[in-house]
């Protein structure tokens, strides 16, 4: 196992009622990074997360948190984890503060000051003494995060954390997660099916499909900054040759009349002028930024699975 890995999943498998839900997931998380766990509904995200925190026992494979096996050293392993699984279910008949005190009572390292700090951190100080049954979903989500980070875990696991938050809440949440990762040194593992959210929040993303992780890469790696341009043009062969000869741009033909190329630093308006000067019939031109969405859709729907 790598020296400083916060979480290491080795060949994790789970079969529930004869159906293999998670098919051999390998994943290693390092400190102070925000990891995204991206996949369509039913891909096995929540099942994987439940195995990490010990709610479900793996059929095969192992989970190690900060070097401790969840199966054999449950207490030590779980001392390093805070999490929200699916929805932030709290005791509705207790107040927010009473809820936090319940969890604080289970861990002697949590001080009164820490509880206060956490409440302020998630912005609940005005409503913390109200019953949770009166909270909105957004407030429950905040309380959920508060209980997850209350014991200063090394690994924070958030399953679909922005469900029910308004846009302002999401921005606030993103800033809080960054603060926790980069200032308090937590490793954050965020699962989501929302691409934009992962793209905006995470450093590294793992994409899971039908129980297998099909790609793990940094978000920068995936979203290339070079602009990709598509032209609809009447003579694609000639255009490809001209681009190569005059601009050293390698273009490929997509459809009968469409070519595409990464133009890098070359100005697009000059290229278009050039095509027209060469007597080509240019009908349409579009610049596309490569997003996580392209990759995601390509990986999860198309046949060309990496």
């Amino acid at each position: 196992m790598p020296q400083n890995a916060v979480l290491e999943l080795t060949n994790l498998r789970k079969t529930i009622k004869g159906k293999e839900i998670v098919k051999g997931v390998n994943l290693t998380l390092y400190p102070s990074q925000i990891y995204g766990f991206l996949g369509p509904n039913g891909a096995g995200k929540t099942t994987t997360i439940r195995m990490i925190v010990g709610l479900i026992k793996p059929t095969e494979g192992s989970v190690r948190i900060c070097g401790y096996s969840v199966a054999h050293d449950f207490v030590k392993a779980l001392s390093n984890v805070g999490c929200i699984i699916e929805s932030p279910d709290m005791y509705k008949y207790l107040t927010g503060m009473e809820n936090l005190l319940q969890f604080a009572a289970m861990n002697k390292t949590i001080s009164q000051q820490r509880i206060k700090d956490v409440v302020e951190m998630v912005g609940l100080q005005h409503r913390v003494n109200d019953k949770v049954s009166t909270y909105s979903l957004g407030m429950r989500q905040r309380l959920g995060i508060a209980q997850a980070i209350i014991a200063k875990p090394k690994l924070l696991i958030l399953d679909e954390p922005t469900n029910g938050l308004d846009p302002a809440g999401i921005t606030e949440f993103r800033n809080l997660i960054r603060k926790l990762a980069y200032e308090e040194g937590m490793t954050v593992f965020v699962s989501s099916h929302l691409l934009l959210e992962i793209q905006q929040m995470c450093d590294i993303v793992s994409i899971i499909k039908q129980g297998s992780v099909i790609k793990t890469a940094t978000v920068q790696e995936i979203i290339q900054h070079d602009d990709k341009v598509e032209w609809q043009i009447n003579d694609p062969e000639k255009a490809i040759a001209l681009l190569m000869d005059h601009w050293q741009i390698k273009a490929t033909q997509l459809k009968t009349n469409t070519i595409s190329a990464e133009i890098g630093q070359h100005p697009l308006d000059k290229l278009n002028e050039f095509f027209i000067r060469e007597g080509l019939g240019l009908t349409y031109c579009t610049a596309k930024q490569n997003t996580l969405e392209d990759l995601f859709l390509g990986l999860t729907e198309g046949d060309q699975i990496v």
Partner: peptide
């Protein structure tokens, strides 16, 4: 049924 069992069982308590 309220889902709070999840919160209870992911603490560092067996």
């Amino acid at each position: 049924s309220s889902g709070t069992i999840k919160l209870l069982l992911v603490r560092n308590v067996p």
